[in-house]
Simulated assay, not measured.
Amino acid sequence: MRSIENILKANKLSVTAGRQKILQLFLNSGGALAHADIEKNAGEHFDRVTIYRTLQAFVEKGLIHTIPTSDNSIKYALCKDDCGEGHHHDHHVHFVCNVCNNTFCLDSVVTPKVDLPEGYQSAELEVVAKGVCKNCGKNTKKKP
């Protein structure tokens, strides 16, 4: 596994304490993160603007991608290795758990091809499934 410093350098981003900390949060998370999650866990040394700019730089470089939420906010999740600057290839389904409210990238579930009417061109396709995640499903099963 590449170091955080090497990931930032490979993407032509300066290595700062803020970028290292935020990238580490993504690497440690099991799912998507909202700006508020990052703000809460990054520590008191990072203001909202610094976090926002860092997230935007990571999106632009193809390190993370955005996931829209039902309340019109955005969550962010790590991209896979085939994403790059200006080219996101995150054609997978996102899953939102109704119990724990976590959002997960289901990389093995590919978004379906959508045949649009003539004259329409799709720039991106977002598919969100909602239900109970595997962790919450284990906790809610009835015991004999």
Rank of each mutant, 00 (worst) to 15 (best):
C133M: 00
A129M: 05
G131Q: 03
K113P: 13
K40A: 04
R48I: 15
F26V: 12
I38M: 11
L55V: 11
H45F: 15
A10D: 09
K75H: 14
D90P: 09
S14E: 14
V99H: 06
D47C: 04
K40C: 00
A57K: 10
A34F: 14
V93C: 02
H87F: 13
C105G: 11
D82V: 14
S122G: 08
Q121N: 08
A129K: 10
G62N: 09
K21M: 09
S14F: 12
H45W: 13
V114Q: 04
T111N: 07
L27S: 12
E124H: 13
P112R: 06
V114K: 00
L116T: 10
K130R: 15
H45K: 12
G137R: 10
C136D: 01
F26I: 07
N101T: 09
D81M: 05
A77N: 10
L63E: 00
K130P: 01
S29H: 13
A34H: 14
V99R: 06
G137S: 14
T54M: 09
Y76E: 06
E60H: 15
I64G: 00
F46D: 03
V93G: 02
N41F: 02
A77C: 09
C100F: 03
G31V: 05
H94K: 02
P68M: 08
I22C: 04
N102W: 07
A42Y: 00
E44S: 10
S108Y: 10
H35L: 13
K75M: 09
G31E: 04
I51K: 04
V93W: 02
G43S: 01
P68A: 07
H88M: 07
K61R: 06
K12Y: 15
P117V: 06
T16D: 13
A34R: 01
T16G: 05
L63C: 08
C79T: 13
N135H: 07
C133Q: 02
A10E: 14
H92A: 04
F58M: 08
G137L: 11
N41G: 06
L25M: 15
T103V: 13
G31P: 08
A129D: 13
Y52P: 07
V49A: 04
G31C: 03
P117M: 05
E124T: 15
G84S: 12
F95G: 14
H87L: 11
K61F: 02
F58H: 01
N28S: 14
Q24Y: 11
T16V: 14
L13P: 06
I67N: 10
Y76W: 07
C133E: 03
S14I: 14
F95N: 00
G131S: 11
A10W: 07
E124M: 11
R19G: 01
L23G: 03
D81G: 01
I22G: 02
V99P: 03
